Simulated assay, not measured.
Amino acid sequence: MSLRVRQPGLLSLLQDRGRFGQHHLGLTTGGPMDLEAFLLCQRLLGNDPNCTLVECSFGGLELDVETDTLLCVTGAEAPLLINGQPRDLWTGHRVQGGDRVQLGHAEHGCRNYIGVVDGFAVTPQFGSTATVLREGLGGLRGEKLAPGDVLPCRPDTQRQRLQLAAAERPRYGAQLTVRVVPGYQQAHFPRLQQRRFYSSPWTVSQRADRMGYRLEGPPIKGDITGIVSEGICLGAIQVPADGQPIVLLNDRQTIGGYPKLGAALSVDAARMSQLRPGATVHFAAISPHAAHNALHLQHWRMRQIPLQSPPEE
């Protein structure tokens, strides 16, 4: 009772919501880069929010179905084929033993989430199934999926099919404004440098991955080049010696010694993870109070967003 990996694509990883409470051991969080697409996939399947799904970066994943279940794909705009027939993203599809699922290369955005009813049955490590390659933890062997890997799941023929209306689906473009809560180390950057950071367009570099998105633009200089290492939160914006900011994401190191301008709002950090190299980022400062309100609004929206019954296949 499983799905079997025929082709894993460029980078496909098993992920639950993440490995929390383990920073004191030096273990980072991991988990889905685009939490919105991940959670909507769970809702469309009627799953618990912490079920294990596959995160596929840049597409190319092919799966052979070996049990009857309901399957859903969310995230980047990429062609989805089931037995060679085009199928909609953001929609639950019934699949059965002998079917083949193919996810093409992403056209807009870069990360998809592939789930089945109640997720894939993987043994947790340190409280989570999230795969972090640098630490060799999570997933099947602490590694990315490979041809022939078996993804255990339970059979299901009863779960209701649901669909997210086209008007409600996220749109992934090539520009994004990221809201930033300034940090106490911002005082180490002169006003001119701060204005340069917030007024300049930044380009996503080729060195953008699950650990962090390195940006390219006018160098930002502070009056210090290093600090005593301290804990790093999701979205922390480090400025290393070359002056090119790095927005740290899910697989970030747990501590670091570069000065930080602040932290990107987690909602925007998730959207940022769908940007491809060459995309443009702008930053806008917001207060902690505004950030708090934005997160509450996003949590409310995720609970209230309507789902509908799709046409019969």
Rank of each mutant, 00 (worst) to 15 (best):
G138K: 02
E36S: 11
G26F: 08
A291R: 05
R252C: 03
C72K: 05
L44G: 06
L80Q: 13
R4E: 13
H282M: 07
N47M: 08
L140Q: 02
L25A: 10
V247A: 01
R154K: 14
G119H: 01
P49V: 04
E168D: 15
G98F: 09
Q163E: 15
E55F: 02
G98A: 14
P86E: 04
G222C: 10
Q298D: 11
A167C: 14
S57N: 08
T67D: 13
E66G: 05
V132W: 00
T52H: 04
V73P: 02
D16C: 01
H23V: 13
E216R: 12
N83M: 14
V54T: 01
I227H: 12
Q185W: 08
D156V: 05
H105F: 06
L39E: 07
R179A: 01
F120T: 07
S273Y: 00
P8H: 12
R87G: 08
T280D: 05
A294E: 06
P218K: 14
L249Q: 00
Q253R: 14
R6V: 14
G127M: 07
L11K: 01
E216N: 12
P277W: 08
P170T: 10
L89N: 09
H289P: 02
F120P: 03
E66D: 09
L151C: 00
Q96Y: 09
E66C: 12
A294C: 09
Q163A: 15
G138M: 03
V54P: 00
S229P: 14
G222M: 07
G142Q: 03
G226T: 15
L275K: 02
L61Q: 06
R195Y: 10
E66K: 11
V122D: 04
E36N: 08
R252G: 05
T69R: 06
P32N: 05
R195C: 13
Y258V: 04
L53R: 03
R17A: 13
T254S: 09
Q298T: 07
R210F: 11
Y198G: 07
G212L: 07
G21C: 06
P182C: 09
F20S: 02
P152L: 09
F20T: 02
L81H: 11
Q193R: 03
P218D: 14
K260M: 15
Q42P: 02
Q308V: 14
V5H: 02
A291I: 05
